[in-house]
Design a protein around this nucleic acid. Structure first.
Lengths: 159, 159
DNA sequence: GTCCATTTACTCGGATAGATATTGTCCGAGTAGCTACGG
DNA sequence: CCGTAGCTACTCGGACAATATCTATCCGAGTAAATGGAC
């Protein structure tokens, strides 16, 4: 199981976007985090398609949130980048082979699929319980309140 | 995020192995589940490397558990197939760019890595709380107690 | 000085190659049981 | 009838291709601001 690398980038970008009142261009975010601009843009497009951010073209354009950072959960960002499909997809192999389960007895999931689904639900619940605002606050506490202000000023000065 | 396809196969195979007192060959498990024998063998090798099953060569050989099915958790099987590395790997991009965090302030994980790690821990806890024995019992309840007996008899008759 | 048309530069967006991991397959090494032979 | 040597067949194990996904990049379409000129 491997999570897309862009998830980390997107989360950091969301935290940064939350610090700026004006839209932030993708190139600026790429410079701030030291990552490939073109590839980051691809992931930001995914955030845009998911309705998490809104893009503005032209000068003074960029990406901005569609709603307050406290209302954006980590789960929404992860699913926007990585897709909403669950990691475990039951292929119903119980229907194969000489002891195949008849269709009329295949109403629900089997115990294996249930266990995997329950675990993924726990994972999603944990991610849904953290908002982008929480992340920014956590980073701020780690740096004694200096990190987020530095980002705010850098984004404002660069413009 | 995509979980290896072999995880489902391995879990079904473990449930089946738990129903047989004698070692079960990989080819038999492949026939029972209607999957490619050679590829399934590859995954069973992973289970063997992880110490979950023990392989016996020669006639009457095959795979058998190293310990009771109640002491084998779903998490152990999943990690044996998919690897123990977490899905989210922090690449420490906070150290990049013009606002790079100094090394002396990078003691622990950042808030983003913490949130992702906590979610994966919840996922692992859920999987660790289910044993192979639990899975077999759950499947049995779904089929009114017929499924596991059918597997037992089929594995015994085929020999 | 004010308004408007034009130009300019900057933005995003999707379509296009390369690298990596997963999926699928094969054949060789080794072992346990079976068979045939000798005692 | 019993023991033993050889043989056969079956098992796993790792090494070898094909495919799918993720990573990385580029250039074109569109838009808002800035500019220059006319009134």
């Amino acid at each position: 199981m491997k999570l897309s690398n862009g998830v980390e980038w997107a989360l950091h970008c969301c935290v940064s976007i939350g610090q700026s009142k004006a839209p932030v261009p993708a190139a600026r975010l790429a410079e701030l985090h030291g990552v490939a601009p073109a590839y980051l843009a691809k992931h930001l497009q995914a955030l845009s398609r998911a309705g998490i951010v809104r893009s503005t073209p032209g000068p003074t354009g960029g990406y901005a949130f569609t709603r307050p950072a406290a209302q954006i959960t980590v789960l929404q960002v992860v699913q926007a980048i990585d897709g909403p499909e669950p990691a475990f997809r039951c292929t119903e192999i119980r229907r194969n082979g000489p002891l195949a389960v008849p269709d009329d007895q295949c109403s629900g999931q089997c115990a294996i699929a249930r266990a995997m689904a329950a675990a993924e639900q726990a994972w999603r619940d944990a991610l849904a319980g953290v908002s982008i605002d929480d992340l920014g606050r956590g980073i701020d506490e780690d740096s004694s309140g200096t990190a987020m202000r530095a980002v705010r000023e850098w984004l404002a000065d660069a413009r």
